[in-house]
Nucleic acid binder design. Structure first.
Length: 249
DNA sequence: AGCACA
């Protein structure tokens, strides 16, 4: 009679034991794999060293990814802190992976090259293509142009004091250049680049010598800038969440 | 919904 864990779909203990690898689903399936993996890497590296990020585009594995950490503590922290984090507009659902990742098994010495694999994982049946639309936004992601367009803030990552106070809404003009504020004063362009360069369309980071704590980050177009902004909004480089808006034109 | 190792 050990207690019951489920508190109504929240997902604490799923009967799966802690693992250095976390399994993520409910990911936005419109995002291209490469961008997705890089973004996951960017968002999760704050919890510890990441060994590998895996994601696949097969029907059976769309919208899912595995992030392999170096240690269980990092995975646990990531699981807890990033649960329901709005990622490309969808709350991530995170669990521990059910099995050990190959990369870990290889380090273990317990790796067995897949022999007991099911052979029917390929189903070339229905190959219908539906083209009711052109690809909506394969590359751009940025359907919305508002920085506050998140779902529900997961934790204290989001800086805005969304209190009852009503503010005069500023007119937001999208720009391929982002304006980043509230950075640690010793942040360097190189440091910022590590975060911002991981999103498609990244061009450069510019800092102003005379004004510590701010930076401009340029992307190829507004959609790319928007995607990066939404993913990094409120992200903590050191300990304070950074604030990202579009640069003024 | 869906737990793999292009």
């Amino acid at each position: 009679m050990s207690g019951e864990a489920a508190a109504g779909g929240g997902g604490e203990a799923n009967g799966v034991q802690p693992n250095v690898t976390i399994y993520i689903n409910n990911l936005n399936e419109k995002i291209k794999l490469e961008a997705l993996k890089k973004s996951l890497n960017a968002v999760f590296s704050q919890f510890g060293k990441i060994i590998e990020v895996l994601a696949f585009k097969t029907l059976k594995h769309k919208g899912q990814a595995w992030v392999v950490f170096e240690d269980v503590a990092s995975a646990t922290e990531a699981l807890k802190r990033m649960q329901d984090f709005p990622f490309y507009d969808k709350p991530m659902k995170i669990q521990y992976a059910k099995t050990k990742s190959d990369v870990v098994a290889k380090a273990d010495g317990t790796f067995v090259p897949r022999e007991k694999r099911k052979r029917n994982d390929e189903k070339p049946e229905k190959k219908q293509k539906r083209e009711q639309h052109h690809d909506v936004n394969q590359a751009g992601v940025g359907m919305h142009a508002y920085p506050g367009a998140y779902g529900a803030p997961p934790l204290s990552q989001l800086p805005f004091g969304a209190g009852p106070k009503v503010m005069m809404p500023e007119i937001i003009v999208p720009n391929n250049i982002l304006f980043v504020q509230e950075l640690p004063h010793d942040a360097t362009a190189l440091m910022l680049q590590m975060f911002f360069c991981q999103y498609p369309g990244f061009k450069e980071v510019r800092m102003i010598e005379a004004k510590p704590g701010i930076a401009f980050v340029e992307y190829g177009d507004e959609g790319q800038a928007t995607a990066a902004m939404n993913l990094l909004q409120g992200f903590k480089i050191k300990e304070n969440p950074m604030r990202i808006t579009y640069a003024k034109k």
